[in-house]
Design a protein around this nucleic acid. Structure first.
Lengths: 258, 258
DNA sequence: CGACGATGTTGCTTTATGTGAAACAAGCAA
DNA sequence: TTGCTTGTTTCACATAAAGCAACATCGTCG
């Protein structure tokens, strides 16, 4: 077998399978064998057999006409297990719906995964402008409002780790100076919410507030996102008020006691 | 290596990994190495290494305290890719919300996967009685309202395949007679909706209607579920009317042209 | 129409790899 | 302390998985 970087004692064929799965993306929801082989540097036959195995368990689905593969419903089942056992997920649904109706903007719930934020829930607004986020999407912490909220309320060592990993300038507004970020996080803690003003994407602003559990720990963030035409300096205060009140309502449902 | 039933030319280590993933369930969202080993008939060390590999790619998460594993966020990301590329999913969200508000009952969207139905979306009602369904849940077609709708509007050969697989009596009301099922499906086609009156679970009733795409094909079903105290003979008609109108609205959004 | 290129699948051979058994840690209870 | 139960690691061996190449299908183009 080809000896690919066998980091520890991991099973390389299993890893290949997982890499194949993860190579599916929003932009490329369908894949061909040969493309996968070249992009992952694997042999065609290896990919073919791996895909056959994945398909036999329903993790991918092979379109009989085009011979292309897409992700299968086994994955959907598994994700249902994850979210159903996530209290925040259940409790936030109705609150999110109301918030979206009140503000007219898309709302998310996100959580921390290592040094990234992941969106676990999304309620879209009716504006025709579609956003590029989706459930499961991973973003940096230091340039998203939700990320900054989660950082601000986490142990400081996490922020330091994020800083060590490097602060990449996604836009001109991205905070790339470590001291500036530290000061910013302090401000977030003081005011109880965070904003991202075109810090990750030009023209896109967002406001986020923390969600607490019954121990008082911050476990998630509630975000409202929109184009800068609709979310701007003069209405940030009133919007933030709504976001905070909604996030507090979810915290209440989670058993948070002030 | 242990030569387990190597059906065709599938990769056994990959299959082990997938079986491990699929062994997580609603009832057992957390798993220990040794339990997995015994339940799947694998060696402890095999499971340990497989889990390490799964964890390294984020498909499972190891609780450092309890040493138990749960499903990881990579799966959430993948499921986001599936649903975001599913038109029905996007278009049905607001309609589902309204329907739940109108009827006060939980609503689902489900699709066909081979001879089963799978729930791809769910909006829960506010009644304290929680239901046992979740996104990704798989159910038989012949005893659920959504399944019967999807069967009724599919090629007849599918119904025959379902019959061949056997009609198991989940309750006293389950249709187990092939001819009766055939007649029932005809009735569903005629009236444009299906009911399940305690056919899969005692005390649980549901009503479902078809969702069409722009080619006029039925691609999904919209269901309303509830306890028999709230969904019963006398209010089935008015409820069905609401369900049909909602499913038609989604069909419209999908480009269905009468 | 036939040659060609690009594709996915399948035999075959080889060896690196995944496996099982047992030893090793680590935790917990009695 | 001694058990008992966990999860991880070591090691030798058998074998499962990788690579290659042949094969089978396509669709395209000259």
């Amino acid at each position: 077998m080809e000896a690919r970087r066998n980091d520890e004692n991991l099973l390389s064929s299993v890893r290949n399978a997982l890499l194949i799965l993860r190579s599916f993306s929003m932009d490329e929801p369908e894949k061909k064998i040969s493309d996968l082989a070249t992009s992952l540097g694997l042999n065609k036959s290896t990919v073919s057999r791996t895909m056959a195995t994945l398909a036999s368990e329903g993790f991918v689905y092979k379109d009989p006409d085009t011979k292309k593969y897409r992700l299968g419903y086994s994955i959907l089942s598994l994700s249902g297990i994850i979210t159903s056992n996530m209290d925040v997920y259940r409790e936030s649904q109705p609150v999110l719906n109301r918030l979206v109706k009140e503000t007219g903007e898309t709302a998310h719930i996100s959580i921390l995964d290592s040094t990234d934020v992941i969106y676990i829930q999304k309620v879209e607004c009716n504006h025709p402008v579609r956003f590029l986020t989706h459930v499961g999407k991973r973003n940096p912490t230091y340039c998203t409002s939700s990320g900054k909220v989660l950082l601000a309320y986490s142990d400081e060592s996490l922020a330091e780790r994020v800083i060590e990993n490097g602060l990449h300038a996604y836009t001109a507004n991205t905070i790339t100076n470590p001291d500036e970020l530290r000061a910013h996080l302090k401000k977030v803690r003081d005011q109880g919410f965070a904003c991202s003003i075109e810090e990750i994407l030009e023209g896109v602003n967002s406001i986020a507030a923390p969600i607490f559990d019954y121990t008082g720990k911050v476990i998630a963030a509630l975000t409202v996102v929109g184009p800068k035409q609709r979310i701007q300096q003069q209405n940030i205060r009133p919007l933030a008020k709504k976001v905070i009140s909604a996030s507090m309502e979810i915290s209440d449902r989670m058993g948070y006691w002030r």
